[in-house]
Simulated assay, not measured.
Amino acid sequence: MTTNAPLPEVLRYTAFSGEPEGGNPAGVVLDATTLDDATMLAIAADLGYSESAFLTELPDGIDGQEGRAYDVRYFSPKAEVPFCGHATVATAIALAERIGPGELVFSTRAGVVPVSVTQENGNVRATLTSVEPHIEEIADADLDEALAALGWPGADIDPAFPPRIAFAGARHLVLAAATRARLADLAYDFARLEALMHRLDLTTVQLVWRESATVFHVRDPFPVGGVVEDPATGAAAAAFGAYVRELGLAPEDAVLTLHQGEDLGRPGELTVTLRAGDPRVRVSGTGTRIG
Rank of each mutant, 00 (worst) to 15 (best):
T2A: 02
T3E: 01
N4M: 00
L7S: 08
P8E: 01
L11K: 10
R12K: 13
F16A: 00
E19R: 13
P20V: 00
P20Q: 02
E21P: 09
E21A: 15
G22D: 07
G22H: 08
L30H: 07
L30S: 08
L35R: 00
D36H: 00
D37C: 03
A38C: 11
T39K: 04
L41T: 10
L41I: 08
G48K: 13
S50Y: 05
A53W: 05
F54T: 04
G61D: 05
G61C: 01
A69N: 00
Y70E: 02
D71I: 05
D71R: 15
R73G: 01
Y74I: 09
F75M: 08
K78M: 13
V81P: 03
F83K: 04
C84A: 08
H86L: 13
A90F: 12
A90V: 01
T91L: 12
I93T: 03
A94T: 09
R98W: 12
E103T: 06
P114W: 05
V115P: 12
T118S: 14
T118R: 15
E120S: 12
N121P: 06
R125M: 10
R125D: 10
E132S: 13
E132P: 06
H134D: 12
H134F: 07
E136R: 13
E136L: 06
A141K: 13
L143F: 01
L143G: 06
D144E: 15
G151W: 07
W152T: 02
P153N: 06
I157W: 11
P159H: 00
A160L: 14
P163T: 02
P163F: 03
A168I: 05
G169E: 00
G169T: 04
A170T: 08
L173F: 12
A178S: 11
T179H: 09
T179P: 13
R180K: 13
A181W: 07
R182V: 15
R182D: 11
L183V: 07
L183H: 08
D185N: 14
A187W: 08
A195E: 06
R199M: 01
R199I: 00
L207Q: 03
L207A: 03
V208R: 09
R210L: 01
A213H: 10
T214F: 10
V215K: 10
D220K: 06
F222K: 02
G225W: 04
P231V: 09
A235F: 09
A235W: 01
A236E: 09
A236K: 03
A239G: 08
F240G: 00
G241A: 09
G241C: 14
V244G: 13
A250P: 12
E252Y: 09
D253I: 07
D253E: 12
A254K: 13
V255T: 15
Q260E: 13
D263S: 15
G265S: 11
R266K: 10
P267T: 04
G268H: 09
L270P: 11
L274H: 10
D278W: 06
V281K: 02
V283M: 15
T286R: 11
T288Y: 06
R289G: 07
I290C: 14
I290P: 10
G291A: 14
